[in-house]
Nucleic acid binder design. Structure first.
Lengths: 116, 116
DNA sequence: TATTTATTTAGCTATTTGGCTAATTAGCAC
DNA sequence: GTGCTAATTAGCCAAATAGCTAAATAAATA
């Protein structure tokens, strides 16, 4: 597609609930296109395009098996995306720390009781 | 925007290198719009639209400070995205295990030497 | 060979995206 | 007030997206 970099392509592929559901299904084992399409009210060509997007993003591979195409998950780009995001882990953990501190302050300001 | 669910909105916001660079900058501390725009060859209105996308995705907040808008990172959606992706952690770790096994097999098949 | 099944490609449409310039709003300083 | 700076909104354009139906391809089966 139009993405210059891998990470953009990965996040873009993940930015669709149908494609995420397909990946969730493939996490349980490989499946044919028809099996993947079955839970959705979407036409076969549309599913095919979603799979092409996932394949282009290297999130799946498709192999021929008689008249079926079996799809398999390729987790590598997921790892790269996770690596990118978790550089910010400290930030959300700090935020939770601040929330905890704030809750600890509550009783003083409002006289409410909190058990520890 | 047009996203029905939070996760799609988050991934969509992350699927752009300019927006990811802006988040990386904000990870070091808050900044005004002008400061955020400075490293890019992109017009101010385009930056403004990127910031609006990030704000809509709840990845940043903008507060008024005289004639400036100061932007701050909001890491919560990043945590949610990381939580989603890391459900697949097992898969990429398994994959690395298989790669390691494969490399261990190499010497037998090819007679190459590998230290352990 | 003809039929059926699985999947993709072609081509259409409507919507979204991301860039731009020009114009507008908002606050500060004179 | 006027002017300066910061930022946004309005409006244009080209490309991408996601859906659809109809047609094409490929393999198995009768």
């Amino acid at each position: 597609m139009r993405h210059s970099d891998r990470l953009s392509e990965t996040f873009s592929a993940l930015a669709d609930p149908t494609r995420r559901a397909i990946l969730a299904r493939l996490a349980q084992g490989e499946a044919s296109v028809g099996e993947l399409a079955q839970p959705f009210r979407i036409s076969a060509p549309s599913i095919s395009r979603h799979l092409k997007a996932l394949e282009h993003a290297k999130l799946i591979v498709r192999t021929k098996d008689a008249q079926w195409r079996r799809c398999r998950l390729r987790p590598q780009p997921l790892k790269e995306a996770a690596d990118w995001i978790t550089r910010y882990r400290r930030h959300w953990e700090d935020q939770l720390d601040r929330l905890a501190e704030y809750l600890d302050e509550m009783p003083k300001s409002f006289g409410a009781k909190r058990e520890r």
